[in-house]
Write a protein that binds this DNA or RNA. Structure first.
Lengths: 213, 213
DNA sequence: AATGATACGGAACAGTCGTTCCGTATACGT
DNA sequence: ACGTATACGGAACGACTGTTCCGTATCATT
């Protein structure tokens, strides 16, 4: 993450997407290099999403229409490529959470966020697996976007609790764990979005304040 | 599973545990062979539980105090060893479900079963991973014990529904998925049993019949 | 105790996958 | 158009792991 070459995938002000088109300290990337960089990112996003992180790196290279050597020029390690993809996904998720944070209906906001989160994690094997291995080194690698995500979800949860739509004793981390776990629950590949949402509904129902019980 | 050697791990009337001490068609296993067979099973159970299915087979052999050659004499394939372990686990789980099927309190019975199930899946990486990869070939390999498990859980669910402790529209498979997913949720290694049970509580609450919502 | 069948141990094999290296091709500045 | 820095492609390397093979050790039988 730190020793990337000039114009590589590092955090170079890419707020939305796409790598930096130029660098301050070095010369701008060559045109074909830039093109390949993006092709690789796109291919990785697709392949990781469908096949998970275990796919051989060659598959990503082939999908990108690029030799492995080129891939390694842009991402010095398979892990670094994986990091780039997952960080992007997490960043988008943070944006989604941000959008719901200003929703006038806090209870529904949390619910909708959970549903989108679940859908996303179910579709993207990589994201799912990343959350699945929390603790190995996931928290270290994605510490920053993770912290951001936690903070946003925390807002959603607190607001929902204040509104009385959610029990007061649930932790933010519980929410994330439950959602990810629920995706795991539904067979990832079945593309059974309806079944997944049914499970999410059950979890959401379980979050409601206890009445009578 | 079918071409096992004489006295190997096949389904030879081992209702509880331990391999058959003799075979009808062939000569009984040699004493040391039998001893090693059990040592391997025990070691595999431990290692798979703690490290998951990805551990090199050598680790299991070493743990068992046995050479790899010996291990392969007893289990012709890593997969076959894995099958033996998981099948055993599933069979025990079926027994647990059976016990709860006659519980005088159907609602509590389901809840207690779910809690035990969750605890087990959280402790045993192999079981967890097996359920996690449902669909690859898991259903094929463990078709029989899985069907049994489903049948027993079905009884628990139906009884709970009749008692009014659980919503009528939940599928048995939903229950299993939710429980396994919940284990996934809790970091497997954290040994945080309390946290896990808290999540299970939420899921269980979500299964209750909707009142007012 | 002797002998043949059975089982053991672990070195060696084969396939896979991440990574490196370097000769060749391409883009950019003059 | 030419020359050089930059980037490309893919064969080759090394580490890892499931599996096989066979010389040796152990058990059971007489």
């Amino acid at each position: 993450m730190t020793d990337v070459r000039a114009g590589s995938s590092g955090a170079s002000g890419a707020t939305a997407d796409g790598p930096a088109t130029e660098r301050a300290d070095a010369r701008p990337m060559r045109a074909d290099a830039l093109r390949n960089h993006e092709k690789i990112l796109r291919a990785a996003e697709e392949v990781f999403a469908t096949d998970g992180v275990m796919v051989p790196i060659d598959v990503v290279a082939e999908r990108a229409g690029v030799g492995v050597g080129t891939l390694y020029r842009h991402f010095p390690t398979k892990e670094s490529l994986y990091e780039a993809i997952v960080t992007t996904r997490l960043t988008r998720l943070v944006a989604t959470a941000d959008a719901y944070a200003v929703d006038p209906e806090p209870g529904l906001a949390l619910e909708h966020f959970m549903r989108e989160f679940a859908q996303l994690a179910a579709e993207k094997q990589d994201l799912f697996e990343a959350f699945g291995q929390m603790g190995i080194d996931f928290k270290a690698h994605f510490a920053e976007p993770l912290a951001q995500l936690m903070a946003r979800v925390d807002v959603l949860v607190k607001r929902a609790i204040e509104t009385g739509t959610v029990r007061g004793d649930v932790e933010t981390e519980d929410i994330i764990r439950l959602v990810v776990g629920t995706c795991h629950a539904a067979g990832h590949s079945d593309a059974d979005a309806a079944g997944l949402q049914r499970l999410v509904s059950i979890v959401i129902a379980g979050l409601r304040p206890t009445e009578r019980w």
